[in-house]
C-alpha cells in the first residue's frame, strides 16, 4: 500500500503524518498521533464522540478522511484548555456534574465550544438542538445543558 503524506495543524502545532487513503481522520488522531481524547463510539457519524473543529466547523472525525486534513486547522479536546486553566466549559462540566462515565464528554465539550463561538447567548432549546448530534447515555442531558448555559453566561460576562 502507498501512504500519503499529509501536513496539517492540530491545536496550533504543525503536524505531519503518513496516512493510508482509507484511514479516517479519527483513525489518524487516535492510532497514529495518540490524540486519544477524541473517542470512537460508532464510526458512522451518529454519536458525536469524535467531534473536532476543522477550520471553524464542527465535524465528526470518523466521517472525514485523514488525507482531507491536508492544510486544515484542526482543534481537538486536547487543545481546549490553556496551559494555565481549564476552558470555562470544562470547569462548568465539572461544577455541574455534567459527566458520569465521561466517554462522550470530549465530544460534548468540542461541540459546545463550537456552539458558543457561533452563538454566545443560546437558549436552552438552541443548546439542545445543537447538541442533538452528540449522544450521552448516562446523564439524560439535564446537567450538560445547564453546564453549557452557565458557561455561556460566564463567558459573556468575561468578554463584556
Amino acid at each position: 500500500m502507498t501512504k500519503q503524506h499529509v501536513t496539517t495543524s492540530i491545536n496550533g502545532d504543525e503536524i505531519e503524518f503518513l496516512c493510508e487513503t482509507e484511514q479516517t481522520l479519527l483513525d489518524i488522531l487516535r492510532d497514529e498521533l495518540q490524540f486519544i481524547g477524541t473517542k470512537e463510539g460508532c464510526g458512522s457519524g451518529d454519536c458525536g464522540a469524535c467531534s473536532v473543529i476543522v477550520d471553524g466547523r464542527l465535524v465528526c472525525a470518523c466521517l472525514m478522511l485523514g488525507v482531507e486534513a491536508q492544510g486544515k486547522k484542526i482543534e481537538t479536546i486536547e487543545g481546549i484548555a490553556t496551559k494555565e486553566e481549564l476552558h470555562p466549559l470544562q470547569q462548568k462540566f465539572i461544577d455541574h456534574a455534567a459527566l458520569q462515565c465521561g466517554f462522550c464528554t470530549p465530544g460534548f465539550l468540542v461541540a459546545s465550544k463550537a456552539l458558543l463561538e457561533k452563538n454566545p447567548n443560546p437558549t436552552e432549546t438552541e443548546v439542545r438542538y445543537w447538541l442533538a448530534g452528540n449522544l450521552c447515555r448516562c446523564t439524560g442531558y439535564d446537567k450538560i445543558v445547564r453546564a453549557v448555559l452557565d458557561a455561556a453566561q460566564e463567558m459573556r460576562g468575561a468578554s463584556a
Partner: peptide, 23 residues
C-alpha cells in the same frame, strides 16, 4: 456536599484512558 469529582479534570481534558486508549 457537592465536591468536584477527583477524576473530573482527566475526563474534561481527554486524558482519561478508556478500553481502546492503551497502545
Amino acid at each position: 456536599t457537592r465536591i468536584s469529582r477527583p477524576d473530573g479534570v482527566d475526563k474534561v481534558t481527554g486524558r482519561a484512558r478508556y478500553g481502546a486508549d492503551l497502545m
